[in-house]
Design a protein around this nucleic acid. Structure first.
Lengths: 150, 150
DNA sequence: CCTCCATGGTTGCATAGGCCAACGACCTGT
DNA sequence: ACAGGTCGTTGGCCTATGCAACCATGGAGG
């Protein structure tokens, strides 16, 4: 496959995936939307972060994140902690309930993916995962988050 | 990387991509949303199909597709043609304007991706593309897509 | 031909997710 | 102290979607 075609294929297939993922998430866990799930996941992964970080990472408006956070807090899945040095900042953390639900949903999602990817060789799986990570971390991703530069 | 971790990474990274793609699409071509773009793309690729086919392929509700189609038609990008054997069916086709816009947007998207993927070896690109195709075409996707299959 | 049910699409209604702009609170450098 | 930037909230508004009800058409049985 020529690089140009590969590139086009990549964007198209990613899009198809994105579209289906949303619908599938709704069917799998009506309790936790794909958005909420990803936010919780990021919190777990990062071990607590600011709303602004979430916004930057997912290229969302801060107001959007603010509302999502409010909803998640109201649902008891996350909690806000003050930042020691900066009172403007709220450090978001998973609560026990949040961790539990996240784990449950992650498990069911993982099962679905695993089934879907059942006949893939382990090597292909890890290579695929690596490509995705590389893509998302790649040059240009800086354009989406505003000077959070690690 | 263990398969289970790879699987989890895949879903997470795909989601990040999906989220950013939407925002990026808005910046790149405000005239054609990501949804519209993908629908037009599918029409071009399939050489005309029914609204139901689009709904099935993207796991969207038929009402959603119906509205999108209405908007795209009003914008003059697609047209509905009667089906010879079945009057219920509208076969959707790109108009010249639709084809033109689709080509323009595809080109700008491709340029962005190309820049993003500039330093990837051609082999990795095609392998990445192949993985995505394989994933989307995998068992289970048959539920969504009726025999457009290669 | 008429009836019953399936299929393709549309429309009403409700919800979620997003963006932008304005604002209040708080930090920082001068 | 003041100016300018950052973090998060809110209000206003729009788009995308799903579900359910509904209309028109097509098909299979009587």
């Amino acid at each position: 496959m020529q690089p140009a075609d590969a590139v086009e294929t990549i964007q198209r297939e990613m899009t198809v995936f994105a579209r289906r993922a949303r619908a599938a998430a709704g069917r799998m866990h009506p309790e936790l939307s794909l958005v909420s799930y990803t936010l919780l996941g990021h919190l777990e992964e990062s071990g607590g972060c600011r709303a602004t970080d979430l916004a930057a990472h997912y290229a969302l408006d801060k107001s959007t994140v603010s509302r999502q956070v409010t909803a998640l807090e109201r649902a008891g899945l996350i909690e806000r902690r003050p930042h020691a040095q900066d009172q403007r900042v709220q450090v978001l953390h998973l609560t026990e309930a949040g961790r539990r639900i996240l784990a449950r949903v992650t498990e069911s999602r993982r099962a679905a993916f695993r089934e879907r990817l059942a006949d893939w060789p382990a090597e292909d799986l890890s290579r695929f995962a690596a490509y995705l990570v590389r893509y998302n971390a790649g040059p240009g991703s800086g354009r989406y988050d505003h000077g959070r530069g690690t």
